[in-house]
Amino acid sequence: MDQNNNQKLKDKLKVFFQSAEQAFQLAGNSSKLYELKTRFMGSKSDLQKIMKEMKNLAPEEKPIFGKWLNEKKQALEESYLSLFHRLKKQELEQRMKEEVVDISLPGPSKNQGGLHPVQLIIQQTVNIFKSLGYSVRTGPMIESDWNNFQALNIPINHPSRDLQDTFYIDSDHVLRTHTSPIQVRSMLAEKPPLAILAPGKVFRRDNDVSHSPTFHQVEGMFIDRHVSMAHLKGTLSYFVKTLFGSNTRVRFRSSYFPFTEPSAEYDCSCPICERKGCSMCQHSGWMEIGGCGLMHPKVLALSHINPEKWEGFAFGLGVERLAIVYYGIPHIKLFLENDIRFLEQFSY
């Protein structure tokens, strides 16, 4: 009887496995297949019911039968898995095909922002001079006549005042005509050695095609025990080479500023044409950048620095002028118009 039971159960199971295998093969998609798997092999499946009949088997037969059954179950499981993977893969491929996007469409628009070219040039200049140990100083735009002129060896009624057309606030205050008064402030407030850089807005009573009453300068001052024209030239050369490239050269031309002696105007070789001559440099091959010189002993003394012990150089540069060269901006008037179409050409 046991034998009989055994055979009967085996037949039943064979039928079950066959129909399960068949059903799996016909499932068609992975979720259906999963459903079938639960139906055939889950806790409430026919298999479980049939397996309950195992208790009727003779004890010595149980292990043998169990082994057979396990093999069968494993085979079905494997068949399920390979089938499932195949279907899943097919379905995924299908899905991805359907998910194709039109990459030619634009992304969602976002406001792009940017810094003003003047700010960009100032930042670049500051960063270059920082590598030489300079630090940034600022000062007020309404300056005393003393700081703006007298402390820089420009006495009242001196003809060199004609070099800078000045806006007056009252008899004793002006809109600073250069960033040089920041030198004075720094000398009075700090002890040498000093290496300072003073960027800022400056004002001249001048308004024509090539002049704006408002523009920007960066002033540099370096005070140490021994400072020479060669140091000055080397420093400015370092600056233009970093900004415009290592082929750029610096040229000094003799000039006059009341606060420096010797004084020079300095030019850099035109970075656009590399001294071949172009419209940007008016075919001279050189671009004027600013003025410089060794600090006049009087200027040091006026700000309580002993010119017997300390020497210095100072230089100024026109930010707009540099920006014009650096970005190829055609004229100075564009800088203060704040036309979005101008501003959006610069990044940050």
Binding site: L132, Y134, A195, D224, G234, F252
Partner: peptide
Amino acid sequence: IPETISYLND
């Protein structure tokens, strides 16, 4: 005039 770079000695 030659070119000599100067750094802040501080």
